[in-house]
């Protein structure tokens, strides 16, 4: 019998989905035993409580802070902006990403200017046929946001507030067909692939 990999089984144990793995697990006692075993949580070692907490470098900020933006963004439509570290797409029908900056309640398109503490940013994405958007923090190596989006039209991501501590934040916005593969979630140059495009933004702190 050909079993799915343990990676596929572990993924299934965490996120059960109908499909080939589910059908196999239903029929195979070895794989079912594995899935059941990894779903049983091991006792938590109290010593780990002392580990420093993972404070998110970007705090979620209520989307309300950008309440005025939604209308504005749709009114002006997507306009490609040149930023210091971003590929610019100008042809119609290619994905585009715009960064919106909220500084003290005033929302403007970000034009590469340095950020201050409490500034918040969010992305507006025109996926041009791609169906998933992922925002990845290259410095913290964390996925900030991933969601299915309508392949046409535009979508807004949640907003993130800049805590002013880091000298720079490096975020990448990936538009893909299906979930972004792990290989796209890392630091370094973005390479366009068949099923994904990637945009990088470096947001520097004022005075650095």
């Amino acid at each position: 019998m050909n079993h799915p990999s343990f990676l596929a089984l572990d993924h299934f144990a965490l996120e059960p989905r109908a499909g080939a793995v589910q059908a196999h697990v239903d029929a195979c006692s070895r794989c079912r035993a594995h899935v059941e075993a990894v779903r049983v949580a091991a006792p938590f070692p109290v010593a780990l409580e002392a580990l420093p907490s993972r404070r998110p470098r970007w705090a979620w900020r209520p989307a309300l802070a950008f309440g005025g933006l939604v209308a504005a963004a749709f009114a002006v439509g997507i306009v490609t902006m040149a930023t210091p570290s971003t590929t610019t797409f100008t042809a119609k029908g290619t994905p585009e990403v715009v960064v919106w900056l909220n500084r003290g309640g005033v929302v403007t398109k970000w034009a590469g200017q340095p950020l201050r503490a409490k500034d918040a940013v969010r992305f507006e994405v025109a996926p041009a046929g791609f169906d998933t958007v992922t925002v990845y923090d290259e410095v913290a190596q964390t996925v900030l946001h991933t969601a299915a989006i309508a392949p046409h039209g535009t979508s807004l991501t949640p907003a993130w507030a800049f805590d002013g501590e880091a000298e720079a934040e490096r975020l990448r916005v990936i538009v893909s067909r299906g979930a972004a593969p792990p290989t796209a979630l890392r630091a370094g140059p973005c390479t366009a692939q068949r099923d994904l495009l990637c945009f990088r933004f470096e947001l520097r702190r004022e005075g650095t």
Partner: peptide
């Protein structure tokens, strides 16, 4: 396993599961 988890907690991506598992593997 414990060393892997500690590193994961300090610097790994905890979501989505597919990405977290790839990092852990």
């Amino acid at each position: 396993a414990q060393e892997t988890f500690i590193r994961f907690w300090k610097q790994g991506p905890t979501e989505p599961p597919r990405v977290a598992l790839a990092w852990l593997y």
